[in-house]
Amino acid sequence: MTRWAGTLFLLLLAATAPLLAPTTWRDAGRWPDLAVLAVVFLGFRGTPDRAAMFGIAVGLVASLWTPEPLLFRPFVLGSVGYVAGHAASILHRDHVVVRLVAAAAGVVAMRLAEQIAAALSAGSAAPWTGYDAARVASVTFTAAVATGLAMPVYFAVAKRWRLLAPLERSFRDV
């Protein structure tokens, strides 16, 4: 049971961290996306399936305080984990730059999906202007950089304390 305590802690932390962040920081993208970091970590140190399932679990919990449809966040986070897992199997999974790019790409995918969901939702027909696109791009870039910078610390802590050990790859999976 205690093996899963760390995993449960990281799951709840990933889902609730944005809620506890200062709103101005979060809206400006100056806050690392811990959910993306968690699923990318599992994608690199676990298996694609486990990363996807963890992403779905985080997304379901986080959907309690998100305005998007119920299954939207589980789908996006699960997809990020699944793709990260497969990408890790063909890339240098231990290279810090590869991990950094994967974390940043996950954030970009997450935010792009949120913009698409907002545009598709009923009643959001406001036309995009150059100003809007530039602002969204700027905030997304900031969030990707913030998450990329937090990646080494997050990976080191999760690895050192074996917080996601039950979901990491073992000899049986090789």
Binding site: L70, F72, F75, S79
Partner: peptide, 21 residues
């Protein structure tokens, strides 16, 4: 299994955007 599950989540998102809101 996982790709099918993800596909089901996407379908659910598109078909039932206000489910359990």
């Amino acid at each position: 299994r996982v790709p099918i599950l993800l596909l089901a989540l996407l379908t659910g998102t598109l078909l039932f955007p206000r489910a359990c809101d």
